[in-house]
């Protein structure tokens, strides 16, 4: 077992996850490639969405990968920072909107 989590070389070796289940890995990676191909959204828009989601799920591999990918697709620091703020706003908003449940319960049980 490694002595720490999140080793950077795990990202590079990601394809090796196929060893335990080649069929499922193939299905996953084929699907993954199809998702990021240009479609109704551009590759750059998809990369920025991925970057925002990476911050929401707090995946360090994805943050590195989609920072580079976003830059490679033409995004600059200001655009990427705005994408991260979108993730932050939704995450924060999701906490805050639960406050309505708190408030409703407080109104019910309080005087």
């Amino acid at each position: 077992m490694s002595d720490h989590y999140y080793r950077p070389d795990h990202l590079k070796g990601f394809a090796n996850i196929a060893e335990g289940s080649p069929d499922l890995a193939k299905k996953f990676f084929d699907y993954y490639s199809a998702v990021f191909a240009p479609g109704a959204l551009t590759e750059r828009e998809k990369a920025l969405i991925a970057l925002a989601v990476a911050h929401t799920v707090q995946c360090p591999y994805c943050i590195d990968a989609y920072t580079t990918e976003s830059m490679q697709k033409g995004a600059d620091l200001e655009q990427m920072t705005e994408a991260v703020h979108v993730a932050c706003a939704i995450r924060g908003g999701a906490s805050l909107v639960h406050g309505m449940q708190m408030k409703e319960h407080a109104d019910k049980v309080g005087m």
Binding site: P38, T42, E43, R44, T68, M71, Q72, K73, G74
Partner: peptide, 17 residues
């Protein structure tokens, strides 16, 4: 040219933007 250590964006998809 990219402003950093990464590859150039595909020119065809970038041009309209």
């Amino acid at each position: 040219n990219p402003a950093g250590a990464f590859l150039a964006q595909p020119q065809q998809s970038a041009e309209p933007e």
